[in-house]
Computed example of a mutant assay.
Amino acid sequence: MPAASAPTIRSRRQFLTLLGISAAAVSCGTATATGPGPGSGSGSQVKTLKYQGAVGSVSLPELAEDLGYFEDVKLDWVGNTISGPQDIQSAATGQTHFGSAFNGAVIKLASTKAPIKAVISSYGSDQYSYGGYYVLEDSPLRSARDLIGKKVGMNTLGAHYQALLDIYLSRGGLSKADAAKVEPLVVPPVNTEQSLRQKQIEVGVLTGVLRDKALAAGGIRPLFTDVELLGPFSAGTYIMTERFIKQNPDTVRTFVTGVGKAIEWSRTTPREQVIARMTEIVKKRGRNEDTATLQYWHSYGVAETGGRITDKSFQLWLDWLGERGEIKQGQLKAADLYTNEFNGQGKG
């Protein structure tokens, strides 16, 4: 594979520009602007939720709908998302009714005074579903200090995997000056294994099917994984605008509780049955998608029962972004970023 081109290796500043949404832009959206005013009965609430999907995969809301957990609420697919920040931007500006992203990206969006609220966890890391930072089997890299001057390939900058890298370096005793000498680069996930094996990067972040395929081929080993670093944790959430939540409380409750039930169904149902159900869902929607990668599904990785959100889900990233100067220290409180009010799953 040729060396990564300039457009591929993007700066953190370019990435974070995706999140530069003003509150004014949020108020003039389309999807979230529809619906009744405060105090309206459930009969006049929005019952069809516009959303973005992902090729060849089944999101928790899609699973919940297929399992019948949404009752009279239906989903309306409007296309596929290109990234978490783009997905929540679409929800914040009213192009869709909900979106999912890394909690650090949710914080960045909230810091622009966008009136959004996280309503349920969407993904995370556990013993079955995690992100690993891999090196070649014969690599001399064994510790955080060994990464000084080395290249680390990941799917995007300024998000989940750069945050975990920074935490790993900090816990490894590196000063900010030394940590700055470690070079995170954007490498498309499908090219990460090849870039690592061809020694264009010294460390590559691999997840899901791409991780499993690379491990099956042999010759690589994990330097560390995110779940080893932090333990099981929920890393992302579904967000909605505060306006939509206020105008459509019954719909939001049905959606959130349904997603919570789907999380527990996926957790307690034999893996083969979950994969079979997902395969049926992908085939039924008729978008000419390959279902082969579904065989590598292990878990959604959500840590808490029913996807209920905790302060911990946001505080780690609040601290990280504050230390980096991405947000003002103390600007936001974890408890103000989310609500469990509409989640009837996992109470108590």
Rank of each mutant, 00 (worst) to 15 (best):
L147T: 06
V152M: 01
V152E: 01
V152K: 01
N155D: 12
N155A: 14
T156L: 05
G158L: 04
A159P: 02
A159R: 13
Y161E: 06
Q162C: 05
A163G: 12
L164T: 07
L165G: 05
D166S: 13
I167A: 07
Y168I: 06
L169V: 04
L169R: 01
S170L: 03
R171Y: 02
R171S: 00
G172T: 13
G172I: 08
G172A: 09
S175A: 12
S175W: 09
K176A: 08
K176I: 04
A180M: 03
K181R: 14
V182K: 02
V182Y: 01
P184N: 08
V186G: 01
V186S: 07
V187Y: 12
V187M: 07
V187A: 05
P189G: 14
V190A: 11
N191S: 14
T192N: 09
Q194N: 15
Q194F: 04
Q194V: 12
S195I: 02
L196G: 01
Q198D: 15
K199Y: 03
K199R: 15
K199I: 11
Q200K: 15
E202Y: 02
E202S: 13
L206I: 12
L206T: 02
L210T: 12
R211L: 08
A214P: 13
L215F: 06
G218H: 09
G218S: 11
I220K: 00
I220R: 01
I220M: 07
R221D: 05
P222Y: 06
F224S: 06
F224Q: 06
F224N: 02
